[in-house]
């Protein structure tokens, strides 16, 4: 039993089935991509129990009881994009779009788990995932603006 994007799902998999393949082939959540299957490229990154995690370096059975968030759960049910998704479009942070889901999941954990992020921090944090198209400028700008948005929100909540 796993919770995926808020929905409880039970399924079965042989022990060797990678979580990536389970999400993609069994649950048909193909937004999580397979780029290297050895934990370097970051295309398969999903959020498990609050932490960005490589789904190619976990077996599906290991996710039993976990709460998983994939790219498909980022926008609202009505299709309203998550603020970071909008910022990716605004800053031209994607071209082919293959790395994008992993980039988004990585960035969300990075921003939400950090207090204040300099551009350098963002570059180091986002170096967890590879993009071959954009040269990263748009990605870094989008994540920076998202981090600022969250900070502003926090500030106004405190105020």
């Amino acid at each position: 039993m796993v919770t995926v994007n808020g929905e409880q799902i039970s399924g079965s998999a042989e022990p060797r089935t990678l979580l990536t393949d389970f999400l993609r082939d069994e649950l048909r959540l193909t937004g999580t991509h397979v780029g290297c299957e050895h934990g370097v490229c970051g295309a398969c990154t999903v959020i498990i129990d609050g932490f960005a995690t490589r789904s190619c370096l976990m077996f599906a059975v290991q996710a039993d009881g976990s709460e998983i968030q994939t790219i498909e759960g980022l926008a609202s049910a009505e299709g309203e994009m998550h603020p970071l998704q909008k910022l990716f479009a605004k800053h031209r942070a994607l071209q082919c779009g293959f790395c994008t889901p992993g980039m988004l999941m990585t960035a969300i954990d990075l921003v939400q788990s950090s207090k204040k992020l300099s551009e350098e921090d963002i570059r180091i944090g986002m170096s967890a995932a590879l993009c071959r198209c954009t040269g990263y400028e748009g990605i870094v700008n989008a994540v920076s603006e998202y981090a600022e948005q969250l900070q502003d929100e926090e500030a106004s909540n405190v105020g």
Binding site: F51, R54, M58, T106, G125
Partner: peptide, 8 residues
């Protein structure tokens, strides 16, 4: 390594 590797 990187953040998602350290997650696990």
């Amino acid at each position: 390594a990187h953040l998602p590797i350290r997650s696990r």
